[in-house]
Amino acid sequence: MSTSRQKIAFLTTGATATFPALIEAAVSPSFLEALAAQQYTELAVQHGADGQQLYEKLVSKAESAGSGVKVTGFALDTTGLGRHMRRAQSSNNAEEGVVIAHAGSGTILDAMRTGVPTIVVPNPSLLEDHQQELADELEAREYVVKGRVEDLAGALARAEKLRQRTREWPPVNSGTHKGLKGILDEEMGYLD
């Protein structure tokens, strides 16, 4: 049993069409470093049957870089991805992690319902780039973070911010108020 708690990032590319660019961006030394910087312990990848070869090639390269983040992978789970996503939820031995998903609507729904901060990455090579619209709107309403393959680490940082903003009190953007100190100073007549 390890002393530190787990923190899992779960990546899914969907069942219908694989998204090799997303797998490449995630299973890379630079992104694993970004995960390690945010105290993640594991990157779990659902890569699809087509992505198997690509995944294996990338893992061997990434592991030699030695970021300390464990990478695990599987092709598909016909019983659904729910239980895999829920591994990223917080529990007795795990801190809440993140779900990184391709921007397919079914996957987004599943991910948002786990309550874990979600990064959605639209696949621009699909017909009419049709995943953009929903991802844009959900990001504007602060339900998810929209990521790009070119800057997955940036999206990870924004997901941490989203987690803080929705979970932490006092709110981070609570304005330029005086605070109780300011009021007490005013009443005491301190002018410094």
Partner: peptide, 22 residues
């Protein structure tokens, strides 16, 4: 809670937290 917040985290305006010795 409000006293703890005042002594522990800086007020947004003055960037200083409450010094209890005041």
């Amino acid at each position: 809670a409000m006293l703890e917040r005042a002594v522990n985290s800086p007020s947004p305006q003055s960037a200083q937290s409450l010094d209890w010795r005041d």
